[in-house]
């Protein structure tokens, strides 16, 4: 009986109807922000620090050099 009811009665949702915002058309803006804040901000910060460090310690020096030399490799 219970099962029959479940199958036939329309679902009564308790949730408030949600209004979708428009962050690239992605649902509610807050959700976009919160799901990503925890990842993108720390990863972004670490990357920025890493890039500054790499730049200062000369890792980007002559970055084009290997691209020039690639042409000399014999096939």
């Amino acid at each position: 009986m219970m099962i029959f009811q479940l199958m036939t009665e329309p679902m009564k949702s308790m949730a408030e109807p949600m209004v979708h915002g428009s962050w690239f058309g992605v649902g509610d803006g807050t959700i976009v922000v919160w799901s990503l804040v925890g990842v993108i901000v720390p990863v972004g910060l670490v990357s920025i620090v890493a890039f500054i460090w790499a730049g200062k310690t000369g890792h980007f020096k002559n970055i084009q050099e290997i691209a020039d030399r690639q042409l000399d490799i014999e096939d």
């Binding site: 690239f24 058309g25 649902g27 509610d28 959700i31 976009v32």
Partner: peptide
């Protein structure tokens, strides 16, 4: 979950 969609769309 909504966050899976939104993270992937972003």
């Amino acid at each position: 979950p909504m966050w899976v969609m939104s993270a992937s769309v972003t």
